[in-house]
Design a protein around this nucleic acid. Structure first.
Lengths: 178, 178
DNA sequence: AAATTTATAAACTTTTTATTTTACAAACTT
DNA sequence: AAGTTTGTAAAATAAAAAGTTTATAAATTT
């Protein structure tokens, strides 16, 4: 049971990475994204697709996809190093910023899709109200739905402000970093 | 193409429900949870497992599971109505509160698991530092990991405060509802 | 207390998502 | 410009998650 200390340290680091991978569902991304994030984070310096492929045991192609997703999510960036032909990728070292990036990326997507949807619905309902012969009851039902639509739009407006509140760093004024 | 207005309204309502279902991944729960949430919400009054089964086309057993999950998440509650033997379930009608409930439920779970993990790691590292013969380099590596552990705990502490900030309604003071 | 209704648990099936393989295109070396 | 290396796209396969069915338990009614 008296393993090499170096071996033990590797194991502990791997446990950290696995923990990050588990967590990632709560952050709205796949475990693989978390694993790659953790590996680069622990490595403390940028890594290539081949190194990542090596470390995760996954294909280089998969790494390419994951890394692209991470760049889109603003939690990784391509970095250049003179003399190295392969692309190098680095991750944000600040957990708080990573949280904010994932939170804002995820919600922005949802907000955008929903605003679009609500506008479409609103237009459709208004059209029906104006152009169709409706009895009292139908008209009332449609008006209820139209009001509902408006309330949803307000809600997504609120979410958009919430995202801004995080993205601007305002949140840290009220919930300060320790 | 000139369908029954009542039919059209049903269709619009279904589209709302499907939209909610889609969204739910961002809220950290399955589409089915969203579908049930949407159906009860649109219904404006509590529903039984049988009614939900009918509306979703899914089995009653599945409805039982989904509804239980929703109660755990604080976005639905069992309600009693005199004279009705079946269980009735109702959902929160306030979107903002539903957002807060899901946000806090999801993060609380993650925070708890991680705090536990970090404490275990911390203890393990400290034990190794005290009880094993380590060369300079090993000791330094372990200290780096120990510091890392501490920083993670701080981060989860921050997340816990963030959850409180939402759960207490404080957030609405700074990002007001429209 | 037998029959019926309701809710849950466990095993199984289907569907969805993640990953790998294969193929190809672009950039770089020699 | 022929041969490598690197990165991406699309199709195929594997793994995970969601959903259904069957069986059983608990509560309720007659």
């Amino acid at each position: 049971m008296d393993e090499q200390p170096l071996e033990r340290i590797k194991q502990v680091e791997e446990q950290f990475v696995e923990k990050i991978a588990d967590n990632m569902h709560t952050y709205g991304v796949s475990a693989t994204v978390g694993r790659v994030l953790g590996i680069i984070y622990m490595n403390r310096r940028p890594m290539t697709l081949d190194e990542l492929s090596q470390e995760t045991g996954m294909s280089k192609t998969r790494m390419s996809q994951v890394v692209r997703e991470m760049v889109d999510l603003n939690i990784a960036e391509k970095v250049f190093e003179k003399g190295i032909r392969k692309d190098l990728y680095n991750v944000e070292q600040d957990y708080y910023q990573t949280f904010v990036s994932l939170f804002t990326s995820n919600w922005r997507k949802t907000i955008q899709k929903n605003k679009m949807f609500e506008k479409k619905m609103s237009a459709e309902l208004k059209f029906m109200l104006e152009n169709e012969a409706l009895d009292e009851e139908m008209e009332q039902k449609m008006n209820i739905l139209l009001k509902e639509t408006k309330e949803w739009l307000d809600y997504y407006q609120w979410l958009a402000q919430l995202v801004e509140f995080f993205d601007s760093g305002e949140i840290f004024k009220h919930v300060p970093k320790p």
